[in-house]
């Protein structure tokens, strides 16, 4: 069981890490990064599955169903959109080569 203080440590360390990672980011990556972090909180899907997996009453089942539905949308949509954005950042050979042009 995670008690209050251990949670506090995890919160603090994760928060510091988030700040550190973002503080060195070039402007060019801001939109993809927002989208990427949007995907990462799609982990809420796991929580929604656990909640629905332990739901008993009808109300809980309805809420759980909505939660899983929304969470899966966050994860799947977040992934596709981010991947499409970052697809454009594929390393390109500097001078007009065909390499890296791909599709």
């Amino acid at each position: 069981m995670i008690d209050g203080f251990i949670a506090l440590y995890i919160f603090a360390l994760a928060a510091i890490l988030g700040f550190e990672i973002i503080s060195k980011v070039p402007v060019i990556l801001h939109t993809p990064l927002m989208s990427g972090s949007n995907f990462i909180h799609g982990i809420v899907l796991v929580g929604a599955m656990i909640a629905l997996g332990h739901a008993d009453t009808t109300l809980e089942k309805v809420f759980g169903f909505i939660a899983v539905f929304l969470g899966a949308g966050n994860a799947a949509g977040g992934y596709v959109v981010t991947e499409r954005m970052l697809e454009m950042f594929k390393p390109r050979v500097k001078k007009d080569d065909k390499d890296g042009e791909g599709s």
């Binding site: 994760a14 972090s37 982990i43």
Partner: peptide, 8 residues
């Protein structure tokens, strides 16, 4: 993951 995104 949540807190990472929260701070970032």
């Amino acid at each position: 993951a949540g807190m990472l995104v929260g701070s970032a």
